[in-house]
């Protein structure tokens, strides 16, 4: 996508500069009209429409994947996240675990994050895992994410939410399935 757009940019600008430099021969009126219409038709209609087609062809399937439709196999892990000024309340409804500012998840398993807010609008975002979704008071939005690799991912509130918005961060730790089970056991024992 970036390649294609850079290309368009360079070509358009190049054409302009050339058009400015160019000293045209006088041409007949009819010929001039023809040239004009060709420019506008190709540049003004065909180019934008093909660009749109290209990027929609990319975009619509990619968007489809992000829908919280039932996954093909297995079950998505549900986690409830409630945002507060300026921290994250994390809850695992299946196991009753409660956490603050951190999520622990199994890698390779789809996650359904049920997002809501206790006060103002926040937005849940883990840049390396996927898109963001807003957290609104009074509503619950469901975000489908999946961490493919074990590791630690940084997350941050992405919708401006007041004074300490810049410090509203959290971490997502993804484990291999066995480590995740171990973590689960430890958490439930601790409680």
């Amino acid at each position: 996508m970036f390649g294609w757009f850079t290309f368009v940019l360079v070509v358009v600008v190049g054409l302009w500069l050339y058009a400015i430099r160019r000293a045209p021969e006088p041409v007949s009126k009819a010929r001039a009209r023809q040239v004009q219409n060709r420019w506008i038709l190709w540049g003004g209609l065909v180019l934008p429409i093909t660009s749109m087609a290209v990027i929609l062809a990319f975009g619509v399937p990619a968007g489809h994947q992000m829908l919280p439709l039932p996954p093909a196999e297995g079950k998505a892990l549900r986690i409830n996240v409630t945002a507060h000024q300026w921290w994250w309340e994390v809850q695992y409804p299946d196991s009753g675990i409660q956490l603050k500012d951190e999520l622990h998840v199994p890698a390779g398993v789809p996650l359904d994050l049920h997002l809501t807010s206790a006060d103002v609008i926040h937005s849940f975002w883990v840049p390396r895992l996927g898109g963001k979704l807003d957290m609104l008071p009074g509503r619950t939005n469901v975000l489908r994410l999946q961490a493919d690799e074990p590791g630690t991912y940084r997350g941050q509130c992405a919708e401006f939410c007041g004074t300490h918005h810049a410090h509203m961060k959290f971490t997502v730790t993804a484990y291999s399935p066995e480590d995740y089970q171990a973590w689960l056991r430890e958490e439930t024992v601790n409680d």
Binding site: L56, G63, H64, L67
Partner: peptide
């Protein structure tokens, strides 16, 4: 056009 591919309410 996107209606050809996308379900309506999710």
């Amino acid at each position: 056009l996107p209606g050809v591919r996308l379900p309506p309410c999710v």
